[in-house]
Design a protein around this nucleic acid. Sequence first.
DNA 1: TTACGATCCGGACCGAGGTCCGTTTAAAGT
DNA 2: ACTTTAAACGGACCTCGGTCCGGATCGTAA
Lengths: 220, 220
Amino acid sequence: MSSALPPFPKPEESISEPQLLEVRSFGDEPCLRADAARNRAKLLEAAARLIAEHGVAGVTMEAVATAAEVGKGTVFRRFGDRTGLLMALLDHSAKTLQADFMGGPPPLGPGAPPVERLRAFGVAVLYRSAEQLDLQLAAQPDPARRFSHTALRALHTHVTMLLRQILPDADCELLSQPLMAYLDPALINHLTRQCGMPMERLEAGWIDLVARLTATPPPC
Amino acid sequence: MSSALPPFPKPEESISEPQLLEVRSFGDEPCLRADAARNRAKLLEAAARLIAEHGVAGVTMEAVATAAEVGKGTVFRRFGDRTGLLMALLDHSAKTLQADFMGGPPPLGPGAPPVERLRAFGVAVLYRSAEQLDLQLAAQPDPARRFSHTALRALHTHVTMLLRQILPDADCELLSQPLMAYLDPALINHLTRQCGMPMERLEAGWIDLVARLTATPPPC
DNA sequence: TTACGATCCGGACCGAGGTCCGTTTAAAGT
DNA sequence: ACTTTAAACGGACCTCGGTCCGGATCGTAA
């Protein structure tokens, strides 16, 4: 009902290069103004430093701004909100993973049979999330947007695609949801830290899950 | 490292009766002091009224306190935090559902074969969540506690138990996670409101998911 | 009835996320 | 070089969740 034209036009969906300030002129992205790009880099670097020193909890928007010698408004203009900043920090790793399963070597990338790719995908995501668990957890948006976020959508799309190759007649759009859910950082956190399960068990669980879901003729 | 003895002893795990102030003396729960019980009822009633009038977003801790003619501290003492208050609002419905599948009539309750119970369970949860979607969404705790909450644990335990009856040799503890995840209010919200899927499709998806996961011999 | 201790109450207080808007500045046009 | 304009900047400001603690209240035992 009330949609005033935003004072902060668009906080950038999610751009890569967490460390360098190199102006990415190729491609199609808006290409920030020189000062903006510089500040962006300073902010990401400051945020990373704060995490290293005080953990994710120490990453306060104001603290980041101060550490980067920049105004608070600048942080919000650039990243939209705290989630956006945290996601940007994860962006490099996300892009790498994405490149790996889009065009990388076989177990993950194209060339292997779909089921095998799916298995490899899950294991890769599992361990990647386990590393950056705290950050992944903190970067999780509120429930209403958990599934809207670009990075997640990309993974979801990929799983759906693989599934469609394996089960052409199933509702893969839906079937991919439980698979993705199994890889949710919040779940990994719960199972490993709160229930004390070892990663090997989670990994085996994934393999089992894939096997059960992709068994071609549903029941008998 | 820093665990001072809490000024608010324990905000009550989750007690029922959202509307009446009747003192529940039987059972084992602490049984609040008269004034405390009265305020608790006033608070829940005020919160419900605020939701009806301004939606979940209108449920500010201060607004609730004011509407209930009570101090802000009282709200926090009683419910711990906003999530606790919202959960308390959902508690009645949660207890009802739980009673239904613990001791109710067959499709849901004991008596029917486990697979059938599982199917019925999913459908029931699906539609129940769809009704109170906004509230369910808002009541969702932060990612680190999503899986620790009592109400969810109860559902999860039940699913695990049913699964164990169906697949005695599988890692049901893990296998139940994707099932529960499919019923996550945040997912239902995404699929119905953001993707525009009808509930019938979600329901069919659940039936299909159960069928695939419980097909006894994994692959061939 | 009185006295006492445990519990509860209230609202000032704090920190953090997010917004606003007057000012500054990069960069494209003349 | 000079003007212009869209974009960026900064930090005061607002809201809201959550904490604290002095003082009021309940329930009980004498």
